[in-house]
Design a protein around this nucleic acid. Structure first.
Length: 191
DNA sequence: TAAAGGATTTTCT
DNA sequence: GAAAATCCTTTAC
């Protein structure tokens, strides 16, 4: 497969479309010379200020500033003690992003096992906080950086066909809207 | 197998 | 004071 980063124009589209198209793309992170790669298999769209589950619903603050910036940048959100990867979408001034919820390890699995405490392989990267821990993604190092260049980027991958993709409402989010906004590759065996 | 609670920090009511 | 885009451990059935 090619190893080209997805261009900024990829992210400068409707958030739901970007969430769909990111399935199959390759998340890459290099930390101190160790490179990890994983194929994206689950994403979630946070569509803007009108989406109550989106952090931008709270308005423009230091915490949400990156969401308002240009597309193609990474945003990391901390829930108490965990970080998550987001890809900012649309254009500057329109706060929205796609949360990367799960990947399949491709490269650097030894580092992932080490960072994740040698759990079963299926539990290395099957959650938004877990995959960050596995990849060594931390806030100060990665918050707000471009996804188009190292150390953290998203590469072109093999497209996952529509027949293998399911769209569902978000689950476990009290402010979630009923619209289907979570994209999952069918048949994944991660839970 | 399911449910409950803790860790931890920012934000809102 | 409570909840949040989570995860892990403990406790109960």
């Amino acid at each position: 497969m090619t190893h080209r980063p997805l261009p900024a124009a990829f992210y400068a589209r409707e958030t739901e479309l970007v969430a769909r198209e990111l399935l199959g793309a390759v998340l890459e992170c290099t930390v101190r010379g160790t490179r990890c790669r994983g194929r994206i298999i689950e994403t979630e769209a946070y569509t803007g200020e009108e989406d109550l589950a989106c952090h931008a619903a709270a308005g423009r603050t230091a915490r949400t500033e990156v969401l308002y910036g240009p597309p193609g940048r990474a945003r990391y959100f901390i829930y108490g003690m965990y970080w998550c990867v987001n890809a900012v979408t649309r254009r500057a001034g329109l706060p929205s992003a796609v949360l990367i919820r799960a990947v399949e390890p491709i490269e650097g699995i030894e580092a992932m096992r080490r960072r994740r405490g040698h759990r079963p392989d299926r539990e290395l990267t099957n959650g938004p906080g877990k995959l960050c821990q596995a990849f060594g993604i931390t806030g100060p190092l990665h918050h707000g950086v471009s996804l188009l260049s190292s150390p953290l980027r998203i590469l072109e991958g093999e497209r996952i066909p529509d027949d293998d993709v399911a769209v569902t409402p978000r689950v476990g989010i009290s402010k979630a809207v009923s619209d289907p906004l979570r994209w999952i590759r069918k048949g994944r065996d991660l839970k």
